[in-house]
């Protein structure tokens, strides 16, 4: 009886400390929430001022390039920047390494 009790309380204590360990670990659900939000909000802020045709423009340019070069769809970024009196369309495509082909 006494032994069982000891074992029981030992296990109990072990469970508690294990739980506590997870609770106090850096990835509490709130910090995970904050991290996800920061990434998402930054992305949405940068895309909200873009003209609505930009995603389709990107898609069509990509299709044209893919006719000639085998590029991945995430190998391309498109950015429209506005300054005082001019707009710049910045297109960045990472081409595959030709030496290997």
């Amino acid at each position: 009886m006494g032994r069982k009790g000891c074992l029981g309380s030992y296990l109990g204590a072990g469970d508690m400390s294990l739980l506590d360990y997870f609770r106090s670990s850096k990835t509490s659900s709130a910090s995970l929430a904050k991290e996800r939000l920061q990434i998402l909000v930054a992305y949405e802020r940068s895309s909200v001022n873009q003209p609505p045709y930009l995603p389709q423009l990107q898609q069509e340019i990509l299709l044209v390039i893919q006719k000639y070069v085998n590029v991945n769809c995430d190998a391309m970024t498109i950015k429209l920047e506005q300054s005082d009196n001019q707009e710049t369309l910045e297109l960045n495509i990472v081409l595959p390494d030709f030496r290997r082909v």
């Binding site: 609770r23 106090s24 509490s28 659900s29 709130a30 910090s31 929430a33 904050k34 939000l37 920061q38 909000v41």
Partner: peptide, 14 residues
């Protein structure tokens, strides 16, 4: 306090 809810500072950081 127990890390299950965004704090005021977390919300204000965003």
């Amino acid at each position: 306090k127990s890390g299950e809810m965004l704090s005021l500072d977390d919300v204000q950081d965003i």
